[in-house]
Design a protein around this nucleic acid. Sequence first.
DNA 1: CAACATCATGAACCATGACTCACTTTGATG
DNA 2: CATCAAAGTGAGTCATGGTTCATGATGTTG
Lengths: 187, 187
Amino acid sequence: MSLDRPMRADAVRNRRKILDAAQAQISEHGPDVGMDEIAKAAGVAVGTLYRHFPTKTDLLAAVIAAYVVRVADDAEASLARAHDGAAAVDEVVGFLDRVVESAAHTHAVKAAARGLGVGGHGDQPDEIRAGAALAELLALGQQAGDIRPDVTVDDFYLLMATAPTDLSAEVRRRWLTLVLPGITTQR
Amino acid sequence: MSLDRPMRADAVRNRRKILDAAQAQISEHGPDVGMDEIAKAAGVAVGTLYRHFPTKTDLLAAVIAAYVVRVADDAEASLARAHDGAAAVDEVVGFLDRVVESAAHTHAVKAAARGLGVGGHGDQPDEIRAGAALAELLALGQQAGDIRPDVTVDDFYLLMATAPTDLSAEVRRRWLTLVLPGITTQR
DNA sequence: CAACATCATGAACCATGACTCACTTTGATG
DNA sequence: CATCAAAGTGAGTCATGGTTCATGATGTTG
């Protein structure tokens, strides 16, 4: 069947520009930026934006999905390094560090995730990828005795969801030091 | 001088009703509830609401101020119990527990606090009260050796600000267990 | 390169929600 | 209980921002 013609070249290009602009604008001004703002930042008319994303909710969902992909990639890279000999704890901590940092940067995305119903356990491929990599990473750390045995992937998600947003690097670091003892076995 | 006549009785009554309704509505529907909704819930016309709070920001500020008063009272009560022989750690943990619980209940208030500029260290009397009581409480716990010596009041505020909102009791409890090791000296 | 479907444009539309105001009601005061 | 300032009312105004649609431009295919 598939009588879907391929997308026109300019359409592809514009979709990219819109997604990038939305990402940037939302990061900077929060999820309440106007669609007009996003369109302008993308160098595109509002109508074009609405052709690609029929609703603001759709656009936010797309931005969030892109973010989840990055998180999943990061988790898998961390796991690969751990398999490669790196200490699992270090990878876990590093991963959390990076996520918190990016959460502070794209704080609005998190807020958006709340706004939508994206809190619940999704079954999107990329969420599954991230969860699987994280689970294995935690298991490695627990075998090594560095991660508390009762820590789960859900715990990790909980911390990620409550990570401080919109704060200075200093405050973020302090938050990490406050939270890490709950995950690792070192006092 | 003071030629301010006392407030009329019905005005006092309505002010109370409005504040209570605002508290309730914001807790339930978030800080984006319409002023009309709040007025209706208070059994009052919009105009009356605007007589007491000329701007939505003013209303939110008033709701937040009321919340801060409750927190300050709680902190002072905890401190009093500690002075009365109760273990300081227990009081600290209990306080955090109650704040997190009420934050989950009135999640919107926290969001509102962000929305306004109320994040920074205010010098309102009640904020000072809360801070002073907390500081003394922490010091007691540290003398007893139960609270990590480097924990500050700011750390506490950071945790309160990042407490999970809008979540089940179970999740909140889990968050507490994850976070407590960063504060106490027990592993 | 003709012909058509896809795509882009942006002014206009419309729902929402904060806020106003001309008018009525009511509590206090002598 | 007469008087009046304070308080209450709620339909209407206005700004904002998401969404549509008639029209024009452009990539693609035979």
